[in-house]
Amino acid sequence: MKDIELIATATFGLEAVVARELRELGYQDLKVENARVTFTGNLSDICKTNLWLRTADRILIKMGEFKATTFEELFQQTKALPWPDWISENANFPVEGKSIKSKLFSVPDCQAIVKKAVVEKMKQKYKLEWFEEKGPLYKIEVALLNDTATLTIDTSGPGLHKRGYRKLGSSAPLKETLAAAMILLSRWHPDRILIDPFCGSGTIPIEAALIGQNIAPGIGRNFAAEEWPVIPKKLWQEARKEAHALANYNRELRIMGQDIDGEVLSLARYHAREAGIDEQVKFQKLPVAELRSRYRYGYIICNPPYGERLGDRPRVEQLYREMGAVFRKLDTWSYYVLTSHEGFEKLFGRTADKNRKLYNGRIQCRYYQFFGPHPPRRKDSELSKTAEST
């Protein structure tokens, strides 16, 4: 099959992070837009990107894009696309939709038109009048923006944030994709210690361990496209084999998750075991006021409470003051804090070196980044020790 146009969808604010991941995987000529990055690949790349992308939401096949201001235009141009090249005779192919600033604003009508057009195309190929739709899932989406329709098929199934290790729920969990983005944006290096003093069910420490050992985040789950006849099973097997070969399972890491809630820490330990990195992450019941470390250089990456509910704000604001006092004692560390509270920097007592708008679900947040000094190079450090001993 010739080059395929693929879309890695992303939460607003993470598009550049997804693009960076794609470049590191070897993809070029990326087109970065709101909530998506478009690139080209082949069948093997569908497997590879689903397995490896840490911050993308889904991998979609872009079937077509065209102007559509009438239902007839939408029908005819959808029917002209090569649906049977992808969709099998027994496929289950539901249609989802969305419409923004377009003449075709009725989403249910657009979905019905696209469904009808795909069925008509399938009839031509398979010589059938009725499709039972009991086979593999091919979720189609029609997305209209400013009268331009984009037609896609989802290869991922459940969102890529569903790594497979978080099988037990907790209140207001941080998505795995956002946690991974926070770590990648920090430029944390696996040789340095990392602490999350508000770890909750353990998402940030676990994602850090997966990054530190170069474990593909999707290696423990399945994807919708694995059931598609058009993608040989061998390609998925090869992609997983390569992912296992690239993982550094023996790399030792210094990652700690702390929280004052002992019950949620038991969830964190369970999730770490499910992810296979429980020996690399240590969890401890500890209030932030007691945060200490014997290490000279390290990273704090955290998602503390926001105080979204009015009654919680005084307690959260006091917590931010406490964080400022505690973190300042670790004056050679770098710290990264995600919160929606507008007054965080004032309460924390320091202006961030950099901040970035991110979304935690539907909550608009800022990712505050405080940079510590770089540790001395090993050679310089050794010379210093030699000089001191003479």
Score class of each variant (00 low, 15 high):
K2A: 13
L14H: 00
A19F: 08
E21P: 06
E21C: 06
L25T: 01
G26Q: 07
K31H: 11
N42I: 11
C47R: 01
L53H: 01
T55R: 03
A68L: 02
Q77P: 05
Q77S: 04
I87L: 04
N90S: 14
V107T: 11
V118L: 09
M122R: 01
K125L: 03
G135T: 07
A143M: 06
D154A: 07
D154L: 06
S156A: 12
Y165I: 01
I183G: 05
S186R: 01
S186E: 12
H189I: 11
I195R: 04
P197L: 05
L210D: 03
A224F: 10
A225D: 02
A225L: 08
A225T: 00
P229S: 12
P232H: 06
W236M: 04
E242N: 01
A247L: 05
R254S: 13
E263Q: 14
E263M: 12
A268F: 09
E274W: 03
I277A: 06
D278M: 10
K282W: 09
K285P: 05
A289N: 06
I301M: 08
D331E: 15
W333G: 04
S334D: 02
V337Q: 05
V337Y: 05
R350K: 15
N360F: 09
Y368P: 06
Y368T: 04
Q369W: 05
T386K: 14
